[in-house]
Design a protein around this nucleic acid. Sequence first.
DNA 1: AAATATACATAATTTTCTTATGCATAAGTA
DNA 2: TACTTATGCATAAGAAAATTATGTATATTT
Lengths: 110, 110
Amino acid sequence: MSNSKLYKGSLNTIILKLLTEHDKMYGYEITQKVKSITKGELNITEGALYPALHKLEAEGLLDVEVAKVDNRLRKYYKLTENGTKETINKLSELADYIKTMQSLVNPKLV
Amino acid sequence: MSNSKLYKGSLNTIILKLLTEHDKMYGYEITQKVKSITKGELNITEGALYPALHKLEAEGLLDVEVAKVDNRLRKYYKLTENGTKETINKLSELADYIKTMQSLVNPKLV
DNA sequence: AAATATACATAATTTTCTTATGCATAAGTA
DNA sequence: TACTTATGCATAAGAAAATTATGTATATTT
């Protein structure tokens, strides 16, 4: 994912946020999108991504739809209603996290 | 620590940064300092803190000095030379992490 | 007297990730 | 043609970092 351990716990937020912008995405597409947006800084590994997608689906935050393109399998994921709500929470948590960390590491600016 | 999972992986950064500002601190003091700076948002649990301090010491990033105050034990930790260097790295990683996450969740602003 | 605060510690478990492996098809290259 | 890379999914073993629970002990407040 990255040499930095800070990304631990951020994967769900990333997945959910991408899905608010792209309506439906499949796993491999997510890895490529993240890689390009972050200019290679962040590479989501398959061993992290697929279990995360399965968990989000099991929690009712994502719906899945299987498709066959060029004779290859794709699993398209999209946000459920609850998924959309949870995304708002996650983004709010991220904003809070960043604010809190900045108050800790840059106390003079806060 | 917090209901948000995003703090996973941030504890070392927090400890090291606090020690650049306070010269020496003991464990309980760190938990109280974090609580007050973050206005209660972040509560470092002992089960996370003490093993983390031991690990940082084992890695040579912290030195420890035992004291007895009011008949109670205190273990004061301070940064070693390597600890100071590593703190700079950690803070740089945090800045990068925040930048990357903002590019993911707020692509229009980047 | 009892509860809370101060101060350390560790063990069992859970969560989340890395690393390794596996299967399969398509496309590009030597 | 053979080999590598890209596309696309999946899971298992292990590591890392936390939570939760528990333990010990002294000081202070109610």
